[in-house]
Design a protein around this nucleic acid. Structure first.
Lengths: 132, 132
DNA sequence: ATTGAAGTCTGGAGCGGCTACAGGGTCAAG
DNA sequence: CTTGACCCTGTAGCCGCTCCAGACTTCAAT
């Protein structure tokens, strides 16, 4: 009887991940299937918690599930060169920067047309920008 | 026989919208059902084109479908005050700014850990950031 | 008149990444 | 013995499309 086993609720609590999300991660093969109690309850250990925290941090950094899958595989092979990890992170960083620029253009366009109005829709800069 | 009617392909071409997307907009009630030819082909006119272009510009500005629905309703009532349009645009602008900040934080976190590597996964800053 | 390519039709499934049920079983405290 | 908190499975929904299969139509070239 290992001391360090716990149910899904506790795992979610400790990793900061929704229970449903944990089951989802298991379903898509991101988190390995844990053992079960006689009643069918999932039983987790510290290794599951580490892996789930890894996933959660990756998601917080905006990595896709597939990128995280790749990063997890890399983490399991510490002796390999980390070029792949670097490539994944760099690609993601580039994508984030692209999105920032895109949103910046959006913000400029929106702030030019917002606060148009003391008037009616007929003279509204917002509606006009869309209709013209 | 009106001169200005055209098929869905031409409409999509002129508005810069995918054919499937047009049918989707019709299905969700964003674009009114057009007339049909005897063979069942949709037939559009300039009013459809204007409405679809409106939608497309709204989407380009990142408005949600529901926001666009509201903006379209407003555009149909030019005599009303445009407070609602202003509210929608301001809320959207605020949301865009929130996302920019969020992505900025993401970029900072990522750029701190990227380009970690001349080494192996064991010493990789990226993997380490996720695993620790 | 025939053929073939390009256009159009419907209905339904799939994407990512969850989230929210419904309808049941289990467990521990009082 | 009951209550309430937890857990189980399976399925459907969210957004905004996008793609597919399989059938039909239109039009130009032969």
């Amino acid at each position: 009887m290992t001391t360090g086993t716990f149910n899904i609720g506790r795992l979610g609590e400790r990793a900061g991940v929704n229970i449903e999300t944990i089951r989802y991660y298991e379903k898509i093969g991101l988190l390995p299937e844990p053992g079960r109690t006689a009643a069918g309850y999932r039983q987790y250990g510290e290794d599951h918690l580490r892996r789930l925290s890894f996933i959660r941090k990756g998601r917080d950094l905006g990595f896709s599930i597939e990128a995280i899958r790749a990063l997890l595989r890399l983490a399991e092979h510490p002796e390999q060169p980390c070029e792949d990890a670097d490539r994944l992170a760099s690609a993601h960083l580039a994508e984030v920067e692209r999105k920032i620029e895109e949103l910046g253009r959006l913000r400029d366009a929106l702030s030019e047309m917002a606060h148009c109005c003391a008037g009616t829709v007929a003279e509204c800069r917002i509606i006009d920008a869309l209709a013209s």
